[in-house]
């Protein structure tokens, strides 16, 4: 009886998981079907012929690789800037005492909730005025508006978890505050820094609104707006090509999920998942 219930529960649970994952599975299946097979009625569930032609088309006949390069540069750039600034900032917020510190922490949380749509118009005007509109750099700058508050908040909660005694012990041994930061705090905070970097990277990789407003050349366009452009500008929509693009766009996530998922879980623990 117990056995039957186990099996029944597992069947039920896995069908729920399958249902949730179905759109993504369907994406992969569609991406390896030849175009004509998509228009078969009734549709074939498993592809009759598996083809990677759409992936080749994507790489050789569309600006996909250029978009991908842009996305990589923007996401790595944003992550690097944000993590360096936020690590120093979070350390300051957690271990130093100065007037206005509490207010500042509140401000960080407030900016973390701020809607991008309020900031995007003034930022657009600012970029035009400074003369950096339509560049990869302008997107890195724009992405710090949401990535920096987010990383600060996450790193702050990671660093609060490091006991004060560790730094105190280093200071007693004659280290300066900065030496203690580099030799004691940083190694302790490293897992938190890695997990914050991953989340920041994903945020930047997936961003759409700023890219839509601030960039309108293929030279600086990231994958999100680039791939949407392929949908809008094509005369008849080639779904299998778009699904192949979607699969390729999700590759970094798959890599992170497969090899670095322990860092993701750590990030959830610190309460830092943004939508």
């Amino acid at each position: 009886m117990k056995m039957v219930r186990r099996v029944a529960f597992n069947l039920f649970a896995w069908s729920v998981v399958g249902l949730v994952a179905f759109p993504l599975i369907w994406m992969v299946i569609t991406s390896v079907k030849p175009q004509f097979e998509l228009f078969r009625i009734p549709p074939t569930f498993l592809p009759e012929t598996v083809t990677f032609e759409h992936y080749w088309t994507l790489i050789y006949d569309t600006p996909f690789l250029k978009y991908m390069r842009n996305s990589l540069l923007i996401a790595f750039g944003t992550t690097l800037v944000v993590i360096v600034v936020a690590t120093l900032g979070a350390h300051s917020l957690v271990r130093f005492r100065y007037p206005g510190r509490e207010r500042l922490a509140q401000l960080v949380l407030f900016t973390y909730l701020l809607p991008s749509v309020v900031l995007v118009l003034p930022l657009y005007l600012l970029m035009v005025w400074v003369g950096i509109a339509n560049s990869l750099f302008s997107l890195v700058v724009a992405y710090t508006t949401f990535a920096l508050p987010y990383a600060l908040w996450l790193l702050r909660s990671f660093m609060q978890g490091i006991p004060d005694d560790l730094e105190a012990a280093a200071l007693v041994d004659g280290a300066t505050r900065m030496e203690a930061f580099i030799d004691v705090i940083l190694p302790q905070a490293l897992p938190g820094i890695i997990s914050t970097s991953l989340f920041t990277f994903i945020l930047a990789w997936n961003e759409y609104l700023f890219a839509l407003v601030l960039v309108n050349t293929d030279e600086a366009r990231p994958l999100t707006t680039g791939v949407m452009n392929m949908l809008i500008s094509s005369f008849n929509i080639e779904w299998s090509l778009l699904m192949a693009a979607s699969v390729m766009m999700s590759l970094p996530l798959v890599i992170i999920f497969a090899f670095l998922s322990s860092y993701l879980t750590r990030g959830f623990g610190a309460g830092g998942v943004k939508g």
Partner: peptide
């Protein structure tokens, strides 16, 4: 598998 939709780009989700 359950978490994946949350991390996937909105563009991908919408296309699918």
């Amino acid at each position: 598998l359950i978490l994946f939709p949350y991390f996937v780009s909105t563009v991908v989700a919408v296309l699918v």
